[in-house]
Amino acid sequence: MIKLNPRIEEAIRNEISVQKQSEDVFDMLKNLIINIFNNNDDILEIEQLIKSLKLYAT
C-alpha cells in the first residue's frame, strides 16, 4: 500500500483551505488520492466528491 507523501497531503490541506471546503471534503479527497495511488479508485467516489464541493458564486 502506497502512502501519501506528507508534502502532497500538505498541498491538499492548503488547497482545501484556499477553496473554503469542509473537513469532510478534505477526507474524501485525501482518500480518493490514496486510492488512485493504489489503483483502487472508484468513479462513484469522484462523483460523490464533486457533488460535495461547495460552489461559491464567482
Binding site: 508534502r7 502532497i8 488547497e15
Partner: peptide, 23 residues
C-alpha cells in the same frame, strides 16, 4: 455538476503544482 468538475480540476491542478513545488 459541471461547475463542480471545473472546481475539482482546478483544485487538482493547484494540488499538483503545489505538491511539485514542495517536493
Amino acid at each position: 455538476f459541471s461547475n463542480g468538475v471545473s472546481l475539482f480540476k482546478k483544485m487538482m491542478d493547484n494540488i499538483i503544482s503545489s505538491s511539485i513545488d514542495k517536493i
